[in-house]
């Protein structure tokens, strides 16, 4: 049992990724000979991961109308708008998701490209938890997501196109007629730009559809999407449309060898 000493604070810091790199290495070396404390750090990390697993699905759930109404009250809006324009400039690089002038209807919130763009906007800026299961555990990732989506689902390999697989996560979709499970795979190029592939079960509602590529834009996020058999696919990113199309074509070919 550790007392409330510097060491314990540092163990929390390590669990939360808050130690500077040099100190982190020292603490990790110390932990190698202190199994009890090492187990504690592991348990705390597991708690954090469990919290994310339990509550992250809320991030991509459609917003209830009453919450949008709450910030739509007339009278204050012009003031709000003026003040926040500056806020937006300050936050611009961090926020990363620019919804349109009018927040979309609930109906539009359930479309494949919208859901995919939203999921991209929410998770692609994440530094610590961009994915739930990372690419080093690919076999586990495939088994896990395949089970949840009810069909074998392998992430395409896009190294040849310049994108490495970071990993994937399980989400809950809206509007599909399958079991609601959605997989998101995340990729990153050498400069840190990220693409996400969103795979939704039975997005068409009839389960046998096949469509050509379609393109949609949500804010600054471009989405190529298509239906194929029981899945709907959407590739999202803030890259140029031509670049997205290039990668989407490779994804399609790998899924349909």
């Amino acid at each position: 049992m550790i007392s409330h000493s510097v060491e314990e604070q540092e163990l929390h810091g390590l669990s939360d990724g808050r130690l500077i790199a040099s100190r982190r290495t020292e603490v990790e070396i110390w932990l190698a000979s202190h199994p009890h404390e090492a187990a504690q750090v592991e348990a705390w990390r597991a708690q954090n991961a469990f919290l994310h697993r339990a509550y992250d699905p809320i991030l991509v759930a459609p917003l209830p109308a009453r919450l949008l109404d709450a910030i739509r009250r007339p009278g204050r809006f012009s003031l709000l708008r003026a003040a926040a324009a500056l806020a937006w400039l300050a936050l611009g690089g961090i926020v990363g998701f620019q919804v349109r002038g009018e927040y979309p209807s609930t109906e539009r919130q359930t479309t494949l490209p919208y859901q995919a763009a939203l999921a991209h906007a929410v998770f692609s800026p994440e530094v610590r938890h961009p994915v739930e299961v990372d690419a080093t555990q690919e076999a586990h990732l495939i088994a896990w997501l395949s089970k949840r989506l009810g069909a074998t689902l392998k992430p395409p390999h896009l190294e040849a196109a310049g994108y490495a697989l970071l990993g994937g996560r399980l989400l809950t979709g809206e509007g599909g007629s399958g079991n609601g499970a959605v997989a998101q795979f995340m990729y990153q190029d050498g400069r840190g730009a990220r693409l996400t592939l969103y795979v939704r079960n039975d997005a068409s509602g009839n389960g046998s559809g096949e469509t050509a590529f379609r393109f949609a834009r949500e804010g600054n996020i471009g989405v190529f999407y298509w239906l194929d058999g029981r899945f709907g696919y959407a590739l999202s990113g803030s890259a140029e449309k031509a670049e997205l199309l290039r990668v989407a074509t490779i994804v399609y070919r790998q899924l349909n060898p």
Binding site: Y55, I58, A61, L63, L68, R72, F77, R81, A84, W88
Partner: peptide, 20 residues
């Protein structure tokens, strides 16, 4: 449009925290 959107963008995280 910026003001509302800047706040709208934060709503998902506020909801996640509130739910937990």
């Amino acid at each position: 449009m910026f003001g509302r959107d800047a706040i709208v963008t934060e709503i998902p995280r506020l909801r996640r925290y509130a739910q937990a």
